[in-house]
Design a protein around this nucleic acid. Structure first.
Lengths: 229, 229
DNA sequence: TCAAAAGTGTTCTTGATACACCCATGC
DNA sequence: GCATGGGTGTATCAAGAACACTTTTGA
């Protein structure tokens, strides 16, 4: 059933930059488009916002439909409203970025997507629409945010070693960090719980596993505590 | 000429939180609505995004049409996409915030607005739609941003004294600052040019006037300089 | 016994904070 | 000459940066 309006209105979509981390590299999840325009080209997962769902819900739904991911960290990034982003017609998109624990989620390609794959964020194929611009902004935002909000943990398994955590930060920040200073600072916040469990299997001393105490962070946060790396 | 679509699409609007500063207080510009819904209630200036203009342009246009302001600092804030923001129909709005030099602009109420007026940001009347939520987010953002980007100058006249600048920061941050430390830091960046001109008319020693050197900031910025208060 | 990563403290340097008096003007 | 806001420097303190060796394990 078609709908009619007095004035033409832009279409509204959502697109998600999904970040994952696989022990050495920061990756973004892309889907291969199954439909025109840009058929068979790689793009960010996304799609139209329905009339009866919030924009946030649309982002969650599209993410799930196109990649099978759910219950992930999702945050609004920016709204892209240039005129010719989409060759078909006027489309405004609200971009989101998501952080997922790669180890804990299984991908599946579904609706509208032939395929879904992880790419190193700095070595992606040519992307459809203005998705490269969106990806670049998401990387910048992640880089900026990770030092003053404890969102890095969303990219790691629940249990992790301090070295893994440090490598993650080094990867995102594209910088190297001093091991002792890093540990001093992060442990000094008192947000990491040592588990008394250790990695096994390396030809070297086992590393202790830690867990991020989110509840404690939220409590401290309310009483003025400020996470900063 | 009406337009038809296979699926109903949300309407898309822009809304602007316009900040001004009048020597003692941070203010927001509101308009009194001339049309339903919420007729005769105060609201943020804004309106529908046209099919042939970018979202940024829509924000500029609405700001100009409803308040007469142009050439002001304007930045995208957040997109609000809940279901029942507007009682008429589904409307998603892209919110912006603007910073204006109150002294240098004359207001005028025009299209869709009976009246436009400045209100202290923490003492606004009840607002239409979810505009209070938008205003609150804008205040938070301004507060967060002003310490690490030199946007405060957009709220002051081109020539200002250090005391005026300090008062501005104190107002936005809702905190008091130490005079000597403030001056040391801000002058230490080398972005303020002393003009050798002085205020006149007070029953006290005249204060030197300064100007913010935006070009110098942009140049330094590219070579890694980071503004921080 | 060797290789490989884990773990651990101290010194130095830098930037943040705290603080009080003299100056120029108008009335 | 006094009231008002403008302008200035130093000493202390806290946090960030730099830096090297010992421990534990598997092969």
């Amino acid at each position: 059933m078609p709908f009619c309006y007095d004035y033409a209105r832009p279409a509204l979509t959502v697109d998600c930059v999904v970040f994952g981390y696989d022990e050495t590299e920061l990756k973004a999840l892309l889907i291969k488009r199954d439909l025109p325009p840009f058929k068979r080209m790689w793009a960010l997962p996304g799609g139209f916002v329905r009339i009866d769902e919030t924009v946030d819900d649309a982002a969650k739904r599209e993410l799930f439909e196109e990649t099978g991911l759910e219950n992930v960290y999702l945050e609004q990034l920016y709204t892209f409203g240039d005129l010719h982003r989409d060759p078909r017609e006027r489309v405004v998109t609200v971009a989101y970025f998501a952080l997922v624990k790669m180890s804990g989620h299984r991908l599946r390609a579904t609706t509208d997507a032939q395929d879904a794959q992880w790419f190193p964020v700095r070595q992606t194929p040519k992307l459809a629409f203005d998705h490269q611009e969106i990806l670049d902004l998401a990387i910048t935002r992640l880089k900026g945010k990770v030092t003053y909000q404890p969102i890095g943990f969303e990219l790691l398994p629940t249990k992790f070693t301090l070295t893994e955590l440090q490598k993650l930060y080094e990867t995102i920040l594209e910088a190297t960090l001093d091991k002792r200073n890093f540990r001093k600072k992060i442990l000094g916040m008192g947000l990491l719980e040592p588990l008394g469990e250790y990695t096994e299997g390396g030809a070297h001393r086992p590393a202790e596993l830690y867990r991020f105490n989110k509840k404690k962070y939220e409590k401290l946060s309310k009483s003025g505590f400020f996470f900063e790396l």
